[in-house]
């Protein structure tokens, strides 16, 4: 009986290991946000909207207040975007937040600080986030798959940064 159990567990392990690289269904955003218009065409730096990227561990998703500062006026020429502008204004009027969905979700066992990487180390956002700034529709999953520890360690080794467990794990 015991041996059968062991076998069963091993089998599950093998199948499980094979399946690890698969990913979930992806994420849909409330508004099909166009990064390119903002960052390439209008040349906004990333921290215009991700306000805390140089100050805090998290970069921050833009609150409605921030969006409406520009989109109060009809600055959008693209008619296809009109309904989404209306969505922003509706949220602003109701005083609610746009329910952005976080794409990059780190495990809770990891302390990751944007300030540490973007400000102190002076890394470009694209090092981890890839070409998200040029995307015209929000991606359903992270463009660059940099959320696993291999990537972290590889980069830390390359750049001769510390990779002690205590620096990130908590």
């Amino acid at each position: 009986m015991m041996r059968r159990k062991i076998l069963w567990v091993c089998w599950c392990g093998i199948i499980g290991a094979m399946g690890v690289p698969c990913r979930g269904a992806g994420t849909a955003q409330p508004i099909p946000f166009n990064h390119k218009i903002h960052t390439v065409d209008n040349e906004f730096p990333c921290d215009t909207c991700h306000r805390y990227v140089f100050e805090k561990p998290f970069a921050g998703l833009p609150p409605t207040d921030l969006c409406i500062q520009c989109h109060e006026d009809d600055i959008t020429t693209n008619p296809a975007a009109a309904p989404h502008i209306q969505t922003i204004r509706r949220h602003a009027k109701e005083g609610t937040e746009i329910p952005w969905v976080r794409l990059y979700v780190l495990p809770k066992t990891v302390y990751y600080s944007h300030r540490r990487h973007a400000k102190i180390a002076g890394l470009e956002c694209s090092v981890c986030h890839g070409d998200i700034g040029r995307s015209e529709t929000p991606p359903a999953r992270p463009i660059a798959r940099t959320l696993d520890m291999d990537h972290c360690i590889k980069c830390h080794v390359e750049r001769k940064a510390e990779y002690d467990c205590s620096r990130c794990h908590r």
């Binding site: 495990p107 510390e162 002690d164 467990c165």
Partner: peptide, 11 residues
């Protein structure tokens, strides 16, 4: 750890 903490990474 390099600064003397015996770390445990539960994950």
């Amino acid at each position: 750890s390099v600064d003397g903490i015996v770390m445990q990474v539960p994950s």
